[in-house]
Amino acid sequence: MRIYPNQLERHIQQPLPNVIMVFGDEPYQVQQALDTLRQVAKQQGCEERIRWTHDNQFNWQLLMDEAQALSLFAMRKLIELEMPTAKPGRDGSKMLQQWCALPDNEHILLLWGGKLGQEQTKSKWFKEVDKHAWFIPVYDVEKDKLPNWLRQQCQQQGLNITANAIELLAHLFEGNLLSAAQEITRLSLLYPNQPIDVVEIEQVVSDQSRFTVFQLVDDLLLGNFDRASHVLQRLQGEELEPVIIAWALQKEAEILAQLVAAQQAGQSIDALFKSLRIWQQKQGLYRQAMQRLNSQSIEIILSSLAHFDLSYKTNGLKHPYTMLAHCCALFTGDPRLQSLTKTMVA
């Protein structure tokens, strides 16, 4: 039976099967599923937990020996086998199939590891085990599904959080579910039984650092270049990796390029804001930037950032923040600076 992580809570109300497989490439959800299954297995009588890691020297006979051996500590055992490659080989395939055929087997075998490809899911051992097992495939949460995932996490923590605050969390923690979950836990401690909106999220995030790259890009969009310069200097003092700043600038420039192109084509900007999941409070910043920047000036920003990325990653830069300051200055839309940049990146 295939069960997705968001369905697991419903299924663990019934007895666990003798084989459970958890495989995926998103570490936080994998760990969350494993922790849940371990807890439930213990509640259902598996007092003893045994763990192995499969490698080329792994002795598969241990699995059957453990299943048939009497325990001094418990009647039922949870036997975990981490399979980094999910390739048990001939001996392992045979032993896994024998495990599924064991009569009166009360123990639980928990197999887990990285993402399975078609080579594994079409293999003989997987097809046979899958007939008797729960298979929990874990995928990274896609961008358009992240707000709903965050909403579910907030509900579990009992948070009263607005839709705009959810969108901001999605913007801040895309691709890092562990940090997102930690932030939600922190919010539950800071704002118990209180409504949480964008202001509270920004306050918590800004508390982590004197200045953040998100403040920098907001100031650039707003046109507050004196403050943006100050924030950039402080980020340099905090030794923030320059690539992170370049990534943030590129992301904002790409969004601006889409907005300007839509505006020139006579399309609805509001509809595009919704499609890009840009929360309402930030839409005004983009509108102000669009008054200064046209498609040509945004293309120059992107070219300058591409030049920075290539120079930094191939030859190294003695003063990367100097070039980043130049990229930031391009958000002013100054035609003289744009002309100079064309010469530099040509």
Rank of each mutant, 00 (worst) to 15 (best):
L16C: 09
G24A: 02
T314I: 06
L324Y: 03
Y28N: 04
L72T: 09
E26G: 00
V204I: 07
Q296E: 13
G89C: 07
D35K: 09
K145P: 02
Q288C: 09
L96M: 03
G284T: 10
A261C: 07
V260L: 12
N18G: 10
I196L: 11
Q203L: 11
S295W: 02
P17D: 15
L34G: 00
L169N: 15
K143M: 06
S275C: 06
L63F: 12
F308Y: 02
I245S: 11
L302C: 09
R49Y: 07
Q157V: 02
M75P: 02
Q291Y: 07
M290C: 02
D207W: 05
T85V: 09
E142V: 09
W247R: 15
N315I: 04
W134Y: 08
V204E: 14
P27H: 13
L34S: 04
R10K: 12
D226S: 15
A41Y: 01
F211A: 04
E299D: 10
Y139K: 14
L256D: 08
K318L: 11
W134M: 00
Q288G: 03
I245A: 14
Q97N: 08
V217P: 10
H230L: 11
P84G: 04
L146F: 12
L302N: 12
K131E: 07
T212R: 14
Q250S: 13
C100E: 01
R234I: 08
C100D: 01
E239N: 11
H326Y: 03
P103M: 01
V205H: 13
Q39D: 08
Q68C: 05
D219I: 01
S123E: 11
I184L: 15
L116V: 02
Q263W: 04
A181Q: 14
P335L: 12
E299M: 11
L8R: 05
K342A: 08
L285V: 05
Q7I: 11
A170L: 14
E202D: 15
G89E: 10
V231P: 08
R336A: 04
P15E: 05
S275F: 15
L220Q: 11
I79W: 01
L96H: 00
W60T: 10
Q281S: 12
T322A: 08
F58G: 04
A74G: 11
P137M: 06
M344I: 13
L310F: 12
T322D: 06
K115Q: 03
M1E: 03
K143C: 01
I269Y: 10
R234M: 06
E9Q: 13
L109S: 00
L189F: 12
D197N: 13
E299R: 12
A246P: 02
I245L: 15
Q155S: 14
L232R: 09
G89I: 10
A170W: 14
Y4T: 06
G117L: 06
A228I: 07
M83S: 00
A261V: 02
E183H: 09
N148P: 02
N224A: 14
L146Y: 12
T341S: 07
S209F: 10
V213P: 05
T332R: 07
D270Q: 13
I244D: 08
A170M: 11
I298Q: 12
V30L: 06
A262K: 05
C328D: 07
K127T: 03
A101F: 00
A181I: 13
V260A: 11
L222W: 12
K42W: 04
A257W: 15
E183A: 12
I50K: 06
Q44N: 09
L276N: 06
E142F: 09
V22G: 00
K115L: 00
A74K: 05
N105D: 02
Q155I: 14
